[in-house]
Amino acid sequence: MGRLGIGLQLYTLRDDMEKDMESTLRHVAKLGYEGVEFAGYYGKPADELKQLLDELGLKAFGSHVSLERFRKDLQGELDYLKTIGANYAICPYVGAEERESVDQWKALIAECQAIAVETNKQGLQFLYHNHDFEFHYKVDDEFVFDAMFAKTGEDAINVEMDVCWVQFAGQDPLAYIAKYAGRLPLLHFKDFTKDAEGKLVTLELGLGDVPLEKVIKAAEQAGVEWLVVEQDHCQKPPLTSVENSLNWVKEHYTNVHN
């Protein structure tokens, strides 16, 4: 069984990326991350970004692309991904105003399905990234999360699972990883606890409630390609937090992987 790739979701470093994208990416590469998942390109042309990534030895495996951007210029987004060498176009979020009813969810699933058909036709894969709200509604007696991925085959929407949000929603992330084995190339690898009001607090890896080592084993068995480190909100400077989380991965996984 091969070792999982270790990537970083750059949303964690959104402020640093906005200030100086190139130096931030250089820092990420120097820390030892093998790949990155984008959440915006900050005006950088695709060919220039590809050249920088190649220089740094970073693999751009995917990007979070808003539904608005998919709707406005699907082909442009896919062309950008192809140029930087990414395989995965990911819907990262659905605005609250678009998910207030079952009918809205049905429409969203149909829209994502149509995007997936075109994306997959062009040699990429369309993935959907969850939060907790996909477990707040049911469509045809199953959670929206599962309804999103009900269609299988070449035109399927595939899975980018955020284990932190799955667990926060009261579900078992290990069971869900196993359920979507073979359809789960990217796994958001996060840790969290809850505050006094029961709200989510994202933490550096190893400081929260997620059974991270069991998640890694389940991910390997499910055919996951990349563990994607992410921390939505950091209590320390984000560059420090992503370094500390990577150190946890090195200590508990990459440096001891057989």
Rank of each mutant, 00 (worst) to 15 (best):
L56Q: 14
F135V: 02
D16M: 03
H27C: 09
G206T: 04
L200M: 06
K121E: 14
D232M: 06
C164H: 06
G153D: 08
I157N: 15
K50L: 09
D20H: 11
N258Q: 12
Q221G: 06
R26A: 06
Q221F: 00
E48M: 06
A181L: 03
Q122P: 05
G182R: 04
V215M: 08
W248T: 12
G198Y: 00
M21N: 11
S241W: 02
I177P: 08
L212V: 02
Y180R: 07
V256E: 10
K250W: 06
T12S: 07
A169D: 08
A169V: 01
L203R: 08
A219T: 03
Y176H: 10
L8C: 08
L200R: 06
L187T: 02
K179E: 08
E100T: 11
N158S: 12
Y137F: 15
E98W: 02
K236Y: 03
E118Y: 01
K199E: 12
K199T: 00
A147M: 05
K121D: 13
D141I: 00
R99C: 08
Q167N: 12
K59A: 12
G5A: 08
K179I: 00
Y137H: 15
M148P: 02
L239T: 13
L203M: 04
H64N: 14
E18N: 15
L186E: 13
D140I: 00
L52A: 12
A147P: 07
F168D: 14
G43M: 05
L174M: 05
